[in-house]
C-alpha cells in the first residue's frame, strides 16, 4: 500500500472510527463498507471536511451479490469419476442471502488532494432502499436512476426517480442476477394485427463458457498480505 493511501486510511479511521470498515484489497485502492443509516452523514463529512474534500462523485453503481463465488463447473470432485459435462446450469435463485444481496458502490474523487475513495453500502431492507446523495453531489442524480432502473434499488429523497436506460414500459430489473441474459419478452411486427407486439422470448438461455473458479497458489501470498493490512 502506498503512503498516500495509508495516510487517507488513517484519517478516515480516526474521523469515523467504527462506522467505516475497511475491505481488504490486493490492489492499492481504498474501499470502505458502511451501514445505510450513516451514509448521508458520512458523505457530507467526506465532501466538506479536511483532509477529505471529495468534491466529486465519479460513479454510483449497483451490485447484485447473488451467486457470488459460485462455480458452474465442478473441477475438483468431478475428476475422480471422469471429467463429466459437469456444468450446473441452474440460474441463481433469489431469496437466499437477502441481507447482503444488493449493494451500492460510490466512487469519490478529491481534486484538491488527488485521492480516491470507494464506499460500499449494503441494502438491508426489502425492497432495497438507501438515502439519496443527490443533495450532496448533483452528479448522483442519473447514476442513482440507473441503479434504480437496472437493480430496483430505491433512493429515498431522490427528486426524480424514473427509469433511464430501459424501454418505456419495461418490466423487471435487467441487471439482477436472476434476470435472464436473453430477457423475458421480445418484440416483432405482427402483420395481422398491423402493429408491433410483445411476446415471450423464443431464445433458450445457454452457457457457452461455464463459470469456473480455480484456486491459484500464485495469488495466495498477496491475499494474506492484504488481509493483514486491513
Amino acid at each position: 500500500m502506498n503512503s498516500a493511501a495509508d495516510k487517507l486510511a488513517g484519517s478516515v479511521e480516526s474521523r469515523f472510527g467504527g462506522a467505516m470498515k475497511r475491505v481488504p484489497s490486493t490492489v492499492e485502492q481504498l474501499t470502505y463498507e458502511l451501514t445505510a443509516a450513516k451514509l448521508r452523514d458520512v458523505c457530507h463529512a467526506l465532501r466538506d471536511e479536511e483532509p477529505f474534500r471529495f468534491e466529486q462523485l465519479m460513479d454510483v453503481c449497483g451490485v447484485d451479490y447473488l451467486g457470488y463465488g459460485e462455480n458452474e463447473w465442478r473441477t475438483q470432485s468431478a475428476t475422480v469419476t471422469g471429467f463429466s459435462r459437469g456444468v450446473d446450469r441452474h440460474p441463481p435463485q433469489a431469496g437466499e442471502c437477502a441481507q447482503r444481496r444488493f449493494a451500492v458502490v460510490y466512487h469519490l474523487l478529491s481534486i484538491r488532494h488527488n485521492q480516491r475513495l470507494r464506499l460500499r453500502v449494503f441494502c438491508a431492507d426489502q425492497p432495497p432502499m438507501l438515502d439519496s446523495v443527490t443533495e450532496i453531489w448533483a452528479s448522483a442524480n442519473w447514476f442513482e436512476r440507473e441503479a434504480f432502473d437496472l437493480y430496483g434499488i430505491l433512493f429515498s429523497g431522490h427528486p426524480d426517480l424514473r427509469r433511464i436506460l430501459t424501454d418505456y414500459g419495461f418490466i423487471g430489473n435487467p441487471f439482477r442476477k436472476d434476470f435472464p441474459l436473453s430477457g423475458n419478452v421480445e418484440v416483432r411486427y405482427d402483420p395481422e394485427k398491423q402493429r408491433v407486439i410483445y411476446e415471450p422470448v423464443s431464445i433458450e438461455p445457454r452457457v457457452l463458457v461455464p463459470r469456473v473458479i480455480r484456486e491459484d497458489p500464485r495469488y495466495q501470498e498477496a491475499f494474506k498480505e492484504a488481509s493483514k493490512n486491513a
Binding site: T26, V27, D59, G69, N71, V105, H107, R116, R211
Partner: peptide
C-alpha cells in the same frame, strides 16, 4: 483473483473508468 478495482483513464471525453468485481472466476 477475487477483488475489486477501478481503473480510470483520461479518455478524450473525460474520465472513463471501469469498475470490476471479480470473485475469482474466469468471468
Amino acid at each position: 483473483p477475487a477483488g475489486e478495482v477501478y481503473a480510470a483513464i483520461e479518455h478524450p471525453k473525460g474520465e472513463f473508468g471501469v469498475y470490476m468485481i471479480s470473485d475469482g472466476a474466469n468471468k
